[in-house]
């Protein structure tokens, strides 16, 4: 491409994803907020949970490596040169880190809401 500007990239992604681009961005922003609020409410990062989620997240990375070629109508065996290995590695990294953070946050929020709902739930149980 002659000049790969942000505006051109944005236009290309807009053509590719349409309204999903905005939904995806909105979801990303909402999720980032959820992470920040969780860390604040838990007063820091819970390392034990992070490690557990990371182990499961590795599986997420590997599934990404298989899912990404499938989206492009082929399989992982299509990879044929250094640029492909780099791209697949990036997919793996993003997949692993992404699923780790998603899991960590989900588990965290579920834990928070359980703890909150306990006093409310008790009278209900007593009935």
């Amino acid at each position: 491409m002659k000049e790969l500007t942000f505006a051109a990239l944005w236009a290309v992604f807009h053509e590719m994803l349409g309204a999903w681009l905005y939904l995806g961005l909105a979801a990303a922003v909402a999720f980032a907020l959820a992470v920040v609020v969780l860390v604040i409410r838990e007063r820091g990062v819970m390392y034990a949970r992070l490690v557990r989620c990371y182990i499961i997240g590795l599986i997420g990375g590997f599934s990404g490596v298989f899912i990404a070629p499938a989206i492009t109508l082929t399989s992982v065996t299509a990879a044929g040169g250094p640029a492909d290995w780099v791209l697949l590695f990036l997919v793996w990294v993003v997949g692993a880190i992404g699923s780790t953070i998603v899991l960590y946050t989900l588990v965290g929020w579920i834990g928070l809401s359980r703890r909150q709902s306990v006093p409310v739930a008790q009278p209900a149980l007593a009935e």
């Binding site: 053509e15 492009t72 044929g80």
Partner: peptide
């Protein structure tokens, strides 16, 4: 012969064309 190039043809060329 690369998969990345295939990705460009299969996924990126059409949106670039429309842009």
């Amino acid at each position: 012969e690369l998969w990345v190039t295939w990705v460009m043809k299969e996924a990126a060329l059409k949106p670039t064309y429309f842009a």
